[in-house]
């Protein structure tokens, strides 16, 4: 008799437990994220948004003040706007990534800018030999001082054409400085322009 009572109690508690678990599962709030409403933030948009947000929401205090006033005024529209603020703050880590991306792209721009200046300077003094119908290529390694002075250069991969190689060496000997380097940050200089290569190409005069 006693056993039967205990078994039925066990069953009862088990049922209660199961039901409570099921209820608790359904009671977890569901995140309502619609794919169509999500937007991707590009780094240039972040820049704009950053500026915008600074203008619209100058400080947290001001925001809270505004929020309070809106509560006081019982303006439902303003409450909706305030509710958007925390969403924006959630993306801060994303923003950090984007900012580092911006920094990288700025560095890349600096490298490209200086590379283009170097490219133009070499092109203005390199007298290419005439009538090179073959596609030739030669590489020159350059060692620069932070002042832009060419400390040394060496043709590491000469082409098969002697006059092509001679013309490159003649051009290189006309240069002693790359003053353009001076505008670069030291870190960028060390990483990219301390040692760099010039790849001279003759795509042929008749292409």
């Amino acid at each position: 008799m006693m056993n039967k009572v205990l078994t039925s109690l066990n069953t009862f508690f088990f049922v209660i437990l199961s039901v409570s678990i099921i209820f608790s599962l359904f009671s977890i709030p569901k995140l309502d994220v619609e794919e169509t409403k999500s937007t991707r933030v590009n780094f240039y948009e972040v820049m704009q948004q950053e500026e915008k947000s600074l203008k619209t929401y100058p400080s947290n205090k001001k925001l809270k003040k505004e929020a309070n006033s809106t509560y006081e005024n019982n303006d439902k529209r303003e409450i909706d706007n305030i509710s958007k603020i925390p969403k924006f703050e959630i993306n801060k880590s994303h923003l950090k990534n984007e900012i580092s991306k911006i920094k990288l792209s700025r560095e890349r721009k600096d490298i490209l800018r200086v590379s283009t200046i170097i490219q133009n300077r070499i092109s203005s003094i390199w007298i290419k030999p005439n009538s090179l119908s073959d596609t030739l290529s030669a590489k020159v390694l350059i060692n620069l001082a932070p002042s832009g002075e060419i400390l040394n250069f060496i043709m590491t991969e000469p082409s098969t054409n002697k006059s092509f190689n001679d013309s490159i060496l003649s051009a290189m000997n006309k240069l002693s400085f790359f003053e353009e380097i001076l505008v670069l940050e030291r870190k960028l200089f060390e990483e990219n322009f301390r040692n760099f290569k010039l790849v001279f190409k003759s795509s042929g005069e008749i292409d």
């Binding site: 490298i111 170097i118 490219q119 070499i122 092109s123 007298i127 010039l198 790849v199």
Partner: peptide, 8 residues
């Protein structure tokens, strides 16, 4: 870094 020089 490699800078390509094509134009003379």
């Amino acid at each position: 870094l490699e800078i390509e020089i094509l134009k003379g």
